[in-house]
């Protein structure tokens, strides 16, 4: 095999990519502790289907089970301990289950085959639609 395994250009490219990625990731974790202390009361879980709002729920410590039924199938999410997790779905790739338990505002769980998007936001003051039937 002739030549070196990697060239100078490779290292520069990899370096730039890693620095750019870390520049976005590090601040998130630095701010993380601070926002952890913020009240979770004003956090909400937005659920969207096909880019349209489907339901907004408060992010609670108590357990809430929500099933999202669409013409493509179902997704079940569980809100608990100030976070949210996709626990079941009948989509073909099950990628949405891999997102795990998300707790930070801006974090999102997406089920692309079903066009379902679940993300944590900060309540902007609008009325919450709390569904009594869930749970």
């Amino acid at each position: 095999m002739k030549g070196k395994m990697m060239k100078r250009g490779d290292l520069i490219l990899i370096g730039i990519v890693l620095i750019a990625a870390l520049a976005f990731i590090v601040p998130r974790y630095l701010n993380g502790d601070e926002s952890e202390k913020n009240h979770i009361q004003n956090r909400v879980v937005h659920i969207e289907v096909d880019g349209k709002p489907y339901k907004t729920l408060p992010l609670t410590e108590e357990e809430q089970l929500v099933t999202i039924n669409t013409d493509k199938g179902f997704n079940q999410i569980k809100i608990h301990d100030g976070g949210v997790q996709m626990i079941d779905a009948d989509c073909p790739d099950k990628l949405c289950l891999g997102f795990g338990f998300v707790t930070r505002p801006g974090q999102q769980i997406v089920c692309l085959p079903h066009r379902v998007s679940v993300f944590i936001g900060v309540d902007s003051g609008e009325e919450l639609e709390v569904d009594d039937v869930v749970g």
């Binding site: 870390l22 976005f24 880019g51 801006g106 999102q108 997406v110 066009r115 998007s117």
Partner: peptide
């Protein structure tokens, strides 16, 4: 493509982590 379909740019939240994963798998 995902951002277009679900009509939200929030999904790019995962790009930095995917970039690091991409460097590892790319090598």
């Amino acid at each position: 493509a995902a951002a277009i379909v679900i009509d939200s740019l929030n999904i790019f939240y995962y790009l930095p982590v995917l970039m690091i994963a991409g460097v590892a798998t790319g090598i």
